[in-house]
Design a protein around this nucleic acid. Structure first.
Length: 562
DNA sequence: GCCGTTTTCGGCCCGACTGTTTTCAGTCG
């Protein structure tokens, strides 16, 4: 949805950054950021409607967007790009470095990339610079390291989007699909693998696409490119008769394939991307299912292919019936423009109904997240609006909830008599990320023990590529969640992907239940649930483990039973 | 640069934290 919207939003965001770095007025910077967010979250394709219908877009920004749609950039953006080197903007991606400090370092020391900054610190060139003490240097180095270790990978949302875009751009293919870690729904992706059956001219079609920045290698059967987003995409042509074995081979994981080939070798067979063979005889090749069946095991869903017990289970016929997108009956964590969402209550509810949900919770932020300016009056007024809306949606139960803030001591916003008025309370950590493991563990356990808290939202608070997970003794937290019946969230927002699948699997062993939530701040975000389902599948979850697959009555029983 | 039943001008998300300063600027959520 809305690829053009995302591209235009990215350009405006870049312009906002550059405008801030060149001393632009802070309110104007915010206007560009606000417009970018609104465009990205706008449900209609802005190349098909007048962009002026998007709130926060006036005449000046509309002109810029229109020029961008014409030629992929706009005059003012070009001008600022010429003033600020790319690497200087990259400096602001280092945690603790904003536009002011980045530009200061560039002007004072000519530092024009994170690498140059690391070198400068190593050589002691920052010593004595105004505003940069030893603590700052330490934090910057930590930030650069974080950037370096995550910089090569993108989150699944970016990769999936790209994979779908590549597939849609090659209509000449008879068959085309993505394999690799995207198909396995891994939370971060190194490169995108696409397999196709079709004419050789497909390779030329591929190289000519506008998303291609550089062709790394190109032959008759395989072409590798780097896209404008900096992601490597490999396209392979495979024989139609080998489609299944090629998909199997290129889906991986490496560990899974090693085990599978070992099983073949033991029977005197050979498995390659061209098929499963006994001598010259083809045992299976066209369909992936046939390969697994020939080995006497169930077909293994790609998210389980990590050599994490799937062979043992598949040989016994005991693979779990994994939760699917179609199983989900509702969303339990969403926002509106009452706090930091960009769509109105009415728009979000209508979009939820259009998705066919049986229930839908509105969970805007609570007063302790001061920047959201939530008040008791605003919250109660929203509840009234929601109750009135309910009449228009007889098939969908509307739940009035909130996303509470878990304070450093584990307490949450609002007194008990207010909390008891909500249908559902999600509680999440939004600050004080660097508490010690002991303090953080106590904080989460206290939140679980709060009788009004139903769900712990985005538990590790990580942001892929930006912020590491908080440190807690998760076994203790999960035991507390299981004991108190507190649901743990799988936040499906792809840069959060939180809980991550390895922790979900661990939590499940403690008997914890989960909710897969979009944490949507706009209408298009509601579609992110599929990424949460990927996490759940990688963690072996069934529908029963996920409370928002439950029928509404069973869910309400759980929420009311504290 | 956007927006408006309190305004077509004068506001705009506001407070905490950090590391540095010696009263505060920059960053973050």
């Amino acid at each position: 949805m809305g690829r053009v919207n995302d591209d235009a939003a990215a350009a405006l965001e870049e312009y906002a950054d550059l405008f801030a770095m060149t001393g632009g007025d802070a309110f104007r910077v915010r206007s560009y950021q606000k417009a970018a967010k609104a465009i990205a979250g706008h449900p209609e394709d802005i190349s098909r409607v007048d962009v002026r219908v998007v709130p926060g877009v006036g005449e000046a920004i509309a002109k810029k967007v229109e020029e961008f749609l014409q030629r992929g950039s706009f005059r003012q953006l070009d001008a600022l790009r010429a003033q600020v080197p790319d690497g200087v903007r990259a400096l602001t991606r280092i945690a603790s470095l904003g536009p002011k400090k980045a530009v200061f370092l560039y002007h004072e020391l000519g530092i024009d990339s994170p690498e140059a900054l690391a070198r400068a610190i190593g050589e002691g060139r920052l010593a004595g610079l105004r505003g940069f003490g030893p603590k700052s240097e330490e934090n910057i180095l930590k930030g650069i390291e974080q950037l370096r270790t995550s910089g090569e990978r993108v989150h699944l949302g970016v990769a999936m989007d790209l994979a779908e875009r590549v597939i849609a751009s090659l209509p000449a293919a008879e068959k085309i699909a993505c394999a690799g870690s995207v198909r396995r729904m891994k939370e971060t992706i190194g490169d995108v693998d696409i397999l196709a059956v079709g004419p050789e001219s497909l390779m030329d079609d591929f190289k000519r696409q506008p998303y291609v920045a550089e062709v790394i290698a190109s032959g008759a059967l395989k072409t590798s490119v780097r896209t404008v987003q900096g992601v490597q995409v490999d396209l392979r042509l495979v024989p139609a008769g080998s489609w299944g074995s090629a998909m199997q081979y290129f889906t991986g994981s490496k560990m899974h394939n090693v085990r599978l080939r070992e099983m073949c070798v033991k029977r005197g067979w050979k498995l390659s991307e061209y098929g499963l063979f006994e001598g010259e005889r083809v045992i299976a090749a066209e369909a992936e299912e046939d390969i697994y069946a020939a080995l006497g095991m169930q077909w293994v869903p790609p998210p389980l292919r990590e050599d994490g017990g799937e062979f043992e289970a598949a040989l016994r016929g005991a693979l779990p019936e994994l939760v699917t997108v179609d199983d989900l009956k509702g969303d339990l964590h969403t926002h509106t423009d009452l706090t930091d969402g960009i769509a109105t209550l009415e728009e979000m509810v209508a979009a939820a109904a259009a998705r066919g949900y049986a229930y839908y919770a509105v969970t805007d932020h609570a007063p302790n997240l001061f920047m959201q300016r939530m008040t008791l009056e605003k919250m109660l007024e929203q509840r009234e609006r929601l109750r009135r809306l309910q009449d228009s949606y007889p098939g969908m139960r509307l739940l009035h909830g909130t996303e509470l803030n878990i304070a450093p001591d584990g307490s949450v916003d609002w007194p008990a008599e207010v909390l008891s008025g909500f249908d559902i309370c999600v509680a999440s950590v939004h600050s004080h990320f660097t508490q010690s493991r002991e303090e953080m563990t106590r904080r989460f356990v206290a939140a679980c023990e709060n009788p009004y808290v139903h769900v712990i939202g985005h538990p590790t608070t990580r942001k892929i590529g930006k912020r590491p997970p908080v440190d807690a003794d998760w076994e203790t937290v999960f035991a507390a969640a299981a004991r108190t019946g507190t649901i743990l969230e799988i936040d499906a927002y792809p840069d959060r992907a939180d809980l991550p699948s390895d922790l979900v699997r661990l939590a499940r062993h403690h008997g914890v239940r989960f909710s897969i939530d979009s944490d949507a701040h706009s209408v298009p975000h509601l579609g992110n649930l599929r990424f949460g389902v990927g996490i759940a599948q990688r963690a072996w979850l069934t529908g029963d483990d996920v409370v928002n697959t439950w029928p509404v009555d069973r869910l309400l029983d759980l929420l009311h039973h504290d």
